[in-house]
Design a protein around this nucleic acid. Structure first.
Lengths: 197, 197
DNA sequence: ACAAAAACTGAATCGCGATTCATAAATCCG
DNA sequence: CGGATTTATGAATCGCGATTCAGTTTTTGT
């Protein structure tokens, strides 16, 4: 019987979990560490989440919700062209490296895990995120910015994979030196929009 | 006191580990399952590997060695142009989806883990793999096929990220239907060489 | 103020799996 | 062939951490 989604303590536990999971990874993280980071007793975690895996799933949904909401807000106010939207999406994704490094580390690793092992959990938020990207690509195909000969699903996976890897790289790099996220975002967008040549 | 690298039993254990880790992931896989799959006793694993994590590391090195060796052989006999070499590398990487799905699943997931959590282990084989890709990109910059304005390290990470994600997608898809790896490889190469337009 | 309900606590419990090691089996060599 | 050495076995051991739940504290309602 999990507690209400809106409660402050639940949110505090999620924040703590994000920090601990990002640092240690899900499997190496202990529930007791999350509890301590949240300032609650071990057993309290189970008042809000069914088990450790449920904590992972709820955290993932919570954070992806956050990312998707902000992305949609951003896309709603930027230019309507597919290339502009792609650039915004890339920029927002890579900005996580400096604005929310814990979140960046968490999603770059746990997303892969969830795709493979939490099989009953179909990860709707991730699917939604890819859906946004695919809409951009397909709009680009309609506008003629993206040629129709390329399989949009493949493009989406490729772009997402590149984003994910570059995000991880930037995040790890930002631990020891400052990184120019905007430059990286521009170059990555250029790479996809124009190719290497 | 690990046994010789060349021994048949050690190889059998590595093959078994690949299968079990690919199916279940490292953390969910049990040493006893690997032992059973290898047809040895649980304790025998420890005659050849120091512990479970050592098994992971040795498996990773073994398999990356295999991938790198084959890639180098392939690149040695294909055309010398950077674009041709990139196409070959992409094709070989994606071919793992159908030729060695266990290996594909293993590296797409465990590589991410090792970058983040086995921090003392610097993963030289992965660095070497990226080195090969970077050499291709930089040769491309010299030939004028790849423009000099793009940061080669970023390109390498982006290409690798895309490869990794598309490989995972193809591998999972190939479980239930046949996939056209060559088409995917061509389209991915086109995407990078020419961009989306 | 008080009783009941709700929320929280944290040590104990329990299950699990990595690893050990006494014993058995296999191999080697004179 | 038989003893010595090496290799393999697998149940027992041990450590660990997820989870429980009896007891305590806080909150709510009259």
């Amino acid at each position: 019987m999990a507690r209400e989604k809106g409660s402050e303590k639940r949110q505090r536990i999620l924040e703590a979990a994000l920090k601990v999971f990002a640092e240690r990874g899900f499997y190496n993280a202990k529930v007791s560490e999350v509890a301590r980071a949240a300032g609650v007793a071990d057993g309290t975690i189970y008042l809000y989440f069914e088990n450790k895996e449920d904590l992972l799933i709820q955290l993932f949904e919570d954070r992806m919700d956050f990312i998707i909401t902000r992305l949609n807000e951003e896309l709603a106010v930027c230019g309507p062209g597919a290339d502009e939207q792609l650039r915004r999406m890339i920029a927002m994704h890579l900005n996580l490296a400096v604005q929310q490094p814990d979140l960046a580390e968490f999603i770059t690793v746990e997303l892969r895990q969830s795709a493979r092992f939490v099989r009953e959990y179909e990860n709707p938020r991730f699917v939604e995120y890819l859906r946004i990207l695919r809409d951009i690509v397909e709009r680009g195909q309609k506008e003629g910015v993206v040629r129709a000969g390329l399989d949009s699903r493949l493009i989406v996976r490729a772009i997402f994979g590149a984003l994910d890897e570059v995000l991880l790289t930037l995040t790890l790099a930002s631990r020891s030196r400052s990184v120019d996220v905007q430059l990286a975002a521009n170059q990555l967008a250029d790479l996809f929009l124009e190719g290497v040549g």
